[in-house]
Amino acid sequence: MISYKPFQKMLIDREIKKTELMKRARISSATMAKLNKNEYVSLEVIDKLCEVLDCQPGDMMEYVKRSEEEESG
């Protein structure tokens, strides 16, 4: 599964508020909620965030192997 923990850490490290980022990247609160819950977001969203944050997609997300419990649940 894809985790956006690096994205969350980046916001904290750079002291960027989520509301400020939503305005600058022109993304909705629903999209921000998806990022907070490690749910699917489009590449268009990733593109917007990378532009605003001046980073690469790999700086914002990481692949985390699912445990067997998660796969069967």
Rank of each mutant, 00 (worst) to 15 (best):
E68L: 10
D54M: 13
M22F: 06
S72T: 14
R24D: 14
E20W: 14
L53E: 02
L35D: 06
I46T: 06
E70M: 08
M60D: 04
E15V: 10
K18C: 10
R14N: 15
L11E: 00
E69C: 04
S42W: 07
P6R: 03
K23N: 12
M60N: 07
K37V: 02
Q8M: 12
S28R: 05
E68A: 09
D59Q: 10
M61Y: 09
I2K: 01
K9T: 10
I16L: 11
C55K: 07
K37Q: 10
K65D: 15
I16Y: 09
P57C: 05
T19Y: 13
K17D: 14
K18V: 14
S3R: 10
P6W: 05
F7R: 00
R24S: 13
S67H: 14
Q8D: 07
I46R: 07
T31H: 06
L21M: 06
D47H: 13
E51K: 14
S67E: 12
D13F: 06
K9A: 05
L49D: 08
P6S: 05
K37C: 06
Y63F: 15
M60L: 15
V64H: 11
T31F: 02
E44G: 03
S3Q: 09
V52H: 09
K17V: 10
M10E: 10
G73R: 15
M1A: 12
S3C: 09
L43C: 11
V45N: 03
E44D: 12
K34W: 01
M60C: 11
K18E: 15
T19C: 08
Y4D: 00
Q56H: 15
E15T: 11
S72W: 08
S67M: 09
Q56W: 04
S72A: 10
C50T: 02
K34H: 06
E39G: 06
Y4I: 00
R66G: 11
I12D: 13
K5L: 11
C55N: 07
K9N: 11
K65M: 12
D47V: 08
P57Y: 10
L53F: 07
I16R: 07
V41F: 03
V52D: 05
V52P: 06
T31C: 05
Y63A: 11
S72R: 13
K18G: 10
L21V: 04
I46M: 14
N38R: 02
D54H: 14
Y40M: 04
K17F: 12
K23W: 07
K9R: 11
M32I: 03
M22K: 09
L21A: 01
R26E: 15
D13I: 07
L53R: 05
I12G: 01
V52S: 05
E71G: 00
A30D: 07
